[in-house]
Design a protein around this nucleic acid. Structure first.
Lengths: 125, 125
DNA sequence: CTCACTAATGCAACAATGTTGCAATAATAA
DNA sequence: TTATTATTGCAACATTGTTGCATTAGTGAG
């Protein structure tokens, strides 16, 4: 199945590229201001994940965030780093530090999803 | 506000105490088989969290899981350990290992939510 | 450039998780 | 036994996300 280059995809990709933080569907919808349907945004984001362009991180606020991670573009989809969510400004960032968890014997890991939430430097009290 | 001791709360607390893994609302509802309403289960679980009896962990399957953690009963609510979810049998476990993430300067952490999903020893292929 | 093919879109409807308002019920203390 | 009010059950709602289907519009071939 060949991909086509549509305005919605271009816009969303551009947003992800220029954003310093990971974005959720509702953030993208807000910024697009009716340029694309809610469902289209979800479908575009899922397609980006399928194609390995972005990775999805599920936050403890119940939403999925999407990011083009630098590391993921080099290696094959290595998003085993920590993520930070500011409870005040809602910013979501990929942290540098790698997650290193040791599992009990016989267990195998498919996916890692690690979050720290709190106040970022700008929002701290 | 004084708490009252109701059958629903007793049943849910007993389930959590006897369960080796963390439980979600739907798991509890299934096991209770109509003994308590869906909403009641949510309210009981939230109350347990407010009272520091349980801690809530939000999984990357989009659901909240609740556990009475041994460590949490001693210290004040230390649930900064890794959690494991088996993608096959759905079991959710608290792992021993503590999460150690270093944040950028000026950041402060309120909450940590770390998941590894994959196959547990029983379900591994 | 035109056309055919079909990926991508928009809309409506749905599913799952979770919360809130409100009247009825039932723990608890007096 | 009774009064107080925490707790419950039901209905309704909110949010996040997906699916079906008809329509639109990229894209490559001629």
């Amino acid at each position: 199945m060949k991909r086509r280059n549509t305005p919605a995809q271009q816009a969303i990709l551009a947003m992800l590229k220029s954003s310093p933080s990971a974005l959720s569907q509702d953030m993208i919808e807000q910024q697009l201001k009716g340029e694309a349907d809610r469902v289209t945004i979800y479908r575009v984001l899922n397609r980006f994940c399928e194609d390995g362009l972005t990775h999805r991180i599920v936050s403890d606020d119940g939403k999925s965030y999407f990011a083009l991670c630098k590391k993921c573009e080099k290696h094959h989809h290595a998003h085993d780093h920590f993520h930070f969510r500011c409870v005040h400004c809602q910013k979501v960032e990929c942290l540098e530090e790698e997650v290193k968890a040791s599992l009990p014997a016989g267990y195998s890991a498919l996916n890692v999803n690690c979050w720290v939430s709190g106040y970022c430097a700008e929002c701290r009290v």
